[in-house]
Design a protein around this nucleic acid. Structure first.
Length: 741
RNA sequence: GGGCGUUUAGCUCAGUGGUAGAGCGUUUCAUUGACAUUGAAAAGGUCAGAGGUUCAAUCCCUCUAACGCCCACCA
């Protein structure tokens, strides 16, 4: 093809043609790459794992940043002769996608429960087929040179197989266990969540001081709480054993107000002497810390809130109310009966669901957990020993701190969209008719699919990759599979190998590089690291690069809901992918970026400058040749010498900076070199030199060579314009993208 | 409550132990032959504040202030 090599450069028509040319060449696939004959090095791999975009997603600035950086590395290494693979894919993103489809259903006036599990999942698949490919197409517009032929979806059959066998593997090692615990629960989504899936919001509230009378009538203890409604589930009051104020009453009983229960006073070191009154009301069912205290003191777990976030039957007269309604009434009643000592205004943090924004309700339920001690150890070692390097290095601390304080990972979710647990229950098991210790009221609500009551109470199950033909317990029933699915991150943690075919696992694991926003570091990178070590025997990548966050110009977070988001596609469509890539990289110096649109304009001008300078050079040369490396460049003038020196220097500098992930600096160097050294100085000088017969030939040679070299070293950053020019030079179908660096 | 980061030209940001830089903006001039998505030049900053180390600090140390982020089971 030939772009119209007249002025000015038009990315709109050029870029799609160029991208198609790359696709047609097949060189995004490393198996098709020409062996670099001139390289005396052994062929080495260079593998980058694309941060999996959610199928729900559309391109945003964060993706543009991740992927432009990765594309620079990929293109650079490809030109350097590496067997270069960029592995793309999309993530089923359990809760995010489910939420999206549920919102769609809501508009139609129905819920997922009206459809039922099977129909609902069908619906999500339909949704996925329709919208799941959008982000991929958008990435192509950016110029992403990933191997789309290897693209994976995290629910693909082969991927699912790896996920299931990972679960079985952990279970057989004894690292996965099932337990009844108080967990973070989103009442809207109807599922458990891990602590990394929560957001914390400040909220104005009150701290209520409630008098709890001692059973022996010798006085009372005052507790401070932000959640008086949970007192119906209190099973103790805890004080610090070192607290002299309370030492005399530890072991005594309390008569719980608004109830006729007696609860003990226990001593626990976790209690802060300085907060409130130093006495804590312990509600194991509705607070994770309290649950842990409860475990230590063998306290009963009495749940008074159900999975919809409403007071349950145990809450007596408050049953069926929302917690905040009950709170108001309970506070009033405490006042009426003289139990309320005081209330003071109080700012505190409330956990909310990262996806839907609903307030999190800790409730007890039966969930599956992955033990983290051994895995954390491996992950710690990998980074301490520098097998994997995290950059910038201050994020290493974030990584280590998280691992050092890690808790077991709640991996089960009560969602429908995801990898169902490979757990099978015996249908014939007699489950008690009594209310189980779980008081989750599943009976009347349509939410009965949530962690079905049968499943909760059932203890006869096996874990197996395949559905067992015969039940090992009763020998005749058809076993039923757990209704829970796995946390999305459990499956994305396996991406560096589950994303590869069995052959590719041998060929392309481990990889080299992954680039992320910082909030993904522990959610994903850490988990990829320990999963990679556990299942493949070595770390999945050598470098984790954490880039800054793109903010609005006035420093606000870019978000769709706030209307502060900026769509990179607008820039791509208007000014071209090169200009957009330029802008992103130009500003990405490691700090957070306050997005300045002027950088896109600068990028557009730079592309145009390259285009025009090339035009000039090619007009002068007349019959351009792609390579004349055989003939050495012999400088005839001071200007010649200077530009050759500068070229050598900038090439070296660019290599170093790319290899250190200093893309912004690399680009700025290239900009300076090309614009000022080459165009402003040498090109102008060459106009004079060309009129002198003595220098004409050597000047042409130098112009030709410097231009070609420039196109190459700029190509990873601005691939389209450089390739478009190259296509005007070479008529034999050679492609700049795979030309030798 | 811990940890981290930022504070440099009107705006967005680089940078260095020794006359302060870029992009955009502003001003002046130039130019129809690669490019007005241009060229040449200029204006504009006591490098957040205070103290310290040093012959010398925007850069190192301490403190202060403002802003931002992450982590945390103070109810």
């Amino acid at each position: 093809m030939n772009a119209d090599f007249s002025k000015p450069y038009d990315p709109k028509t050029t870029e799609p043609e160029i991208y198609q040319k790359w696709l047609d060449s097949g060189y995004f696939n490393p198996d098709n790459l020409p062996v670099n004959k001139n390289s005396r090095l052994k062929i080495k791999n260079y593998v980058v794992y694309m941060p999996l975009p959610n199928v729900t997603g559309t391109l945003h600035m964060g993706h543009a940043l991740d992927n432009t950086g990765s594309d620079i590395l990929i293109r650079y290494h490809r030109m350097k002769g590496f067997r270069t693979l960029w592995l793309p894919g999309t993530d089923h993103a359990g809760i995010a996608t489910q939420y999206k489809v549920e919102k769609e259903l809501k508009k139609e006036g129905i819920s997922r429960f009206d459809l039922g599990r099977e129909k609902f999942i069908e619906r999500v698949w339909k949704w996925k087929e329709e919208y799941g490919g959008i982000i991929t197409e958008q990435l192509k517009k950016l110029g992403v040179s990933a191997d789309w032929s290897r693209s994976r979806f995290t629910l693909d059959k082969s991927y699912a197989r790896d996920v299931i066998s990972a679960f079985v593997h952990y279970y057989e090692k004894g690292w996965i266990y099932r337990g009844f615990r108080t967990v973070n629960w989103c009442p809207r989504c109807g599922t458990s969540l891990s602590e990394l899936e929560l957001e914390h919001k400040e909220e104005k509230s009150f701290l209520w001081y409630i008098k709890y009378p001692l059973s022996d009538g010798s006085g009372s203890v005052t507790v401070a709480t932000t959640r008086p409604e949970t007192m119906l589930g209190d099973t103790a009051v805890a004080v610090n054993p070192k607290d002299k104020r309370y030492s005399s009453i530890v072991g005594k009983k309390i008569r719980l107000p608004l109830s006729d229960r007696e609860i003990p006073i226990v001593a626990d070191l976790k209690i802060d002497l300085n907060f409130g009154t130093g006495a804590l009301k312990v509600t194991p069912a509705h607070d994770i810390t309290d649950f842990e205290i409860g475990q230590r003191h063998k306290l009963e777990t009495i749940s008074v809130i159900d999975e919809r976030g409403k007071m349950n039957a145990k809450a007596g007269e408050y049953a069926g109310m929302k917690t905040d309604e009950a709170r108001i009434l309970i506070v009033q009643k405490l006042k009426d009966f003289g139990f309320l000592e005081k209330e003071e205004p109080y700012m505190h943090n409330v956990s909310t669901c990262e996806r839907c924004g609903h307030v999190i309700e800790p409730i007890p339920s039966t969930q599956w957990f992955l033990k983290m001690d051994k895995l954390a150890e491996k992950a710690l070692k990998a980074v301490k020993s520098k097998e994997t390097k995290i950059q910038p290095k201050n994020f290493q601390k974030v990584y280590l701190d998280w691992l050092l304080n890690i808790r077991d990972w709640t991996i089960s979710r009560q969602l429908w969209w995801g990898h169902q647990l490979p757990v099978y229950f015996c249908k014939q098991e007699e489950v008690s008719n009594e209310e189980s210790q779980m008081s989750i009221g599943v009976k009347e609500s349509k939410a009965s699919d949530i962690n079905s009551k049968f499943e909760i109470q059932s203890s006869k199950f096996i874990v197996s990759a395949e559905k067992p033909k015969t039940c090992p317990f009763c020998k005749h029933c058809e076993m039923i599979q757990s209704t829970d699915v796995l946390d999305t991150w459990f499956s994305s943690a396996l991406w560096p190998f589950a994303g590869l075919s069995d052959d590719d696992k041998k060929k392309y694991y481990p990889g080299n590089f992954v680039s992320n926003a910082r909030e993904i570091l522990n959610l994903w990178d850490t988990r990829m690291i320990f999963s990679g070590i556990e299942f493949m025997g070595e770390v999945p990548f050598k470098d984790v690069f954490i880039h800054g966050t793109i903010l609005t110009k006035d420093g606000k977070r870019m978000s769709k809901s706030l209307g502060t988001g900026i769509d990179p596609l607008n820039y791509i469509n208007q000014y071209g992918a090169d200009a957009t890539r330029f802008a992103v990289i130009w500003q990405a110096n490691g700090q957070d970026i306050r997005w300045d649109e002027a950088a896109v304009m600068a990028g557009r001008k730079f592309s145009n400058k390259i285009w025009n300078a090339s035009r000039f050079v090619l007009e002068q040369i007349g019959n351009p040749k792609s390579e004349n490396k055989s003939s050495k460049l012999i400088p005839e003038t001071a200007a010649d010498e200077e530009i050759i020196g500068k070229l050598t220097k900038i090439k070296k500098q660019t290599e170093t900076l790319i290899e250190q992930f200093e893309f912004a600096k690399a680009l700025q160097g290239l900009y300076d070199f090309f614009w000022h050294d080459f165009c402003d100085k040498y090109l102008e000088e060459s106009k004079k030199q060309l009129t002198d017969e003595k220098n004409k030939e050597s000047t042409l040679k130098i112009l030709n060579a410097v231009l070609l070299e420039s196109l190459k070293i700029i190509h990873p950053f601005l691939p389209f314009v450089t390739e478009a020019i190259y296509q005007n030079i070479d008529k034999e179908g050679e492609i700049l993208m795979v030309s030798e660096w």
